[in-house]
Design a protein around this nucleic acid. Structure first.
Lengths: 144, 144
DNA sequence: CACAATTCGATTGTACACAATTAAATAGTG
DNA sequence: CACTATTTAATTGTGTACAATCGAATTGTG
């Protein structure tokens, strides 16, 4: 018999890992209409809050680096959701802005978070608790 | 101002998504000695429990499909951790078993889960709660 | 102002992840 | 027994992820 500590079902990290993947799967049909993937949807969420942001700042917000963001943003640009342009103040900086189409998408997206939460069958208490614990864990893991 | 519902920081799914990625980053140095990635480590966890398993059953256990598992298992085979072989009873089935080296790795792995949990700074209560809620959510999302 | 250090994005290489398709083998049905 | 349906891995194509590196631009220091 395997060590209890090493049993798959005892691994909180496995639950986390598997749940995240099942979550993005459930989001896929909800995001189909917007023609974005889940990570791309996160970029939209940021831009709906800020209008204009550098790749660097976007990466910090989403915990993603340029190796992930650069190709992703190019795809989003091809799909007409955003525009990318070098900053005039600092040529090293690339700034991302929403297109008209990208702005319009916000209205379509309004129902999505609730539609997802309904599928989880979690009650409000559990959602709040989960969010709190994950926030604490994320902040801790993000430290040096 | 953006819709409250659509704010990034209100998205429990984003916390889930970001925390999972930070988690696998933290695991990387812990798994270096074993020469495996986090998903590969999950395969080892299953094999330390079962000795022998089909790709199909492994995928069901880990919520992964053959498109992910086949190349991953081939890499693990190259690294000498597992062996893959067609079943004699049913030629369609590929069975995975640990090598001697793969079995040995279990001893080295014993400290890993605790080492990780220490880094999260979560107390026992929070860990139990989190695991419970994620299990419930995962089971729900995994349904048709 | 020179010039080393830093910052920023892009690129490269490796490794998942998954939908869709294919091919081989087996099981089920008449 | 023929023949269809099903099961199972593998393959293909697209899209993240991230470490490591590069090159261009800017900043800090003397």
């Amino acid at each position: 018999m395997a060590n209890e500590i090493l049993k798959l079902d005892n691994q909180i990290c496995f639950q986390l890992y598997a749940t995240t993947r099942e979550m993005t799967k459930r989001y896929r049909p909800l995001l189909e209409e917007l023609n974005v993937t889940y990570p791309q949807y996160l970029v939209l969420l940021v831009l709906w809050e800020t209008d204009r942001i550098s790749v660097k700042a976007l990466g910090k917000r989403l915990f993603l680096d340029s190796g992930t963001l650069t190709p992703m943003l190019k795809r989003m640009e091809e799909h007409g959701l955003i525009q990318r342009a070098r900053s005039k103040e600092d040529e090293r900086v690339v700034e991302v802005v929403l297109t008209e189409q990208g702005q319009q998408a916000e209205k379509q997206a309004e129902q999505i978070p609730l539609q997802f939460i309904e599928q989880t069958n979690l009650n409000e208490e559990e959602v709040i608790q989960l969010k709190q614990t994950l926030s604490k864990m994320l902040a801790q893991l993000d430290e040096a």
